[in-house]
């Protein structure tokens, strides 16, 4: 099992390219998930302030 994980990580020296691409991919996807989430929260906050006054 450990052997398998190590091979998967190193990939004969090519692992750095593959994992770098995956990292970039997940950063971009998570960013795109987070932005609308933040925007909706902001809209709701503004609304509650508005009605609170």
């Amino acid at each position: 099992m450990l052997e398998f994980i190590r091979d998967l990580f190193l990939m004969d020296g090519q692992g750095k390219y593959v994992w770098f691409v995956l990292l970039i991919f997940f950063i971009v996807i998570c960013f795109n998930y987070y932005l609308p989430y933040r925007a909706i929260r902001k809209i709701k906050e503004e609304n509650s302030q508005h009605t609170g006054e």
Binding site: M11, Q14, F25
Partner: peptide
């Protein structure tokens, strides 16, 4: 190419 071809699984779909 060995293992570096695995980038295809991100590259082609995107």
């Amino acid at each position: 190419q060995g293992d570096v071809y695995r980038i295809i699984f991100v590259h082609v779909p995107s």
